[in-house]
Simulated scan of single mutants.
Amino acid sequence: MDEKEEWSVRAKLFTPEIKKLRLEIKACENIRNRSFDKDIERITQKKIKQRDAR
């Protein structure tokens, strides 16, 4: 095997792990986005209540 083929084989060994990590990253981003949206909504509601109390 020449060096290029050897590196290609080695790279393919990482593919399943990379796929798992990409899915984990996507899940984390979804969680962060949902949390962030709720925080914005909560802050907005608080500001509206403060404005209405005036």
Rank of each mutant, 00 (worst) to 15 (best):
R32C: 11
F36N: 02
R42S: 11
E29L: 05
A53Y: 11
K49Y: 02
R10C: 03
L21T: 08
T44M: 05
L13Y: 04
C28I: 14
E29N: 07
K19F: 00
L21D: 09
S8Y: 01
E5R: 07
K4L: 11
R34E: 15
E24I: 05
K26V: 01
R42Y: 06
K19A: 06
Q50S: 07
D37T: 10
K19Q: 04
I18T: 08
L23K: 15
L13T: 11
V9I: 13
K26G: 04
I48Y: 05
N30L: 07
N33Q: 13
L13D: 08
A11R: 06
I18G: 01
I18Y: 02
R42G: 06
E3D: 04
V9S: 02
D37Q: 11
R10Y: 09
P16G: 07
I18E: 00
K49M: 07
W7P: 00
R54T: 10
A53W: 10
K4Y: 08
S35I: 15
F36R: 08
R34M: 12
L23A: 15
I25G: 09
Q50K: 11
E6I: 09
K4A: 14
V9L: 14
A27D: 14
F36V: 11
F36Q: 04
L13E: 15
R34S: 10
L21I: 10
W7D: 07
L23Y: 10
K46M: 03
K46D: 15
L21H: 07
K20I: 09
F14E: 11
R42P: 07
R54A: 12
A27E: 15
K4T: 09
N33K: 11
T44W: 02
S35Y: 10
D52F: 04
C28P: 00
D52M: 12
W7R: 12
K12Y: 02
R10G: 03
K12M: 14
T15Q: 06
D52L: 15
I40A: 06
E6M: 10
I25C: 02
K20M: 08
R51C: 12
K20W: 04
A27K: 08
K12P: 00
K47N: 08
E17D: 15
I25P: 01
I40Y: 02
Q45S: 11
N33D: 15
L21C: 09
R54P: 00
I31K: 09
M1I: 06
E17M: 13
D2P: 05
Q50M: 14
I40P: 05
L13G: 14
E17I: 13
K46E: 15
Q50D: 14
R51Y: 13
L23C: 03
E41W: 04
I48Q: 03
R42N: 08
R51I: 12
Q50Y: 07
F36P: 00
D39T: 12
N30D: 13
I43Y: 07
P16V: 05
I18W: 02
P16R: 03
S8P: 00
K47S: 04
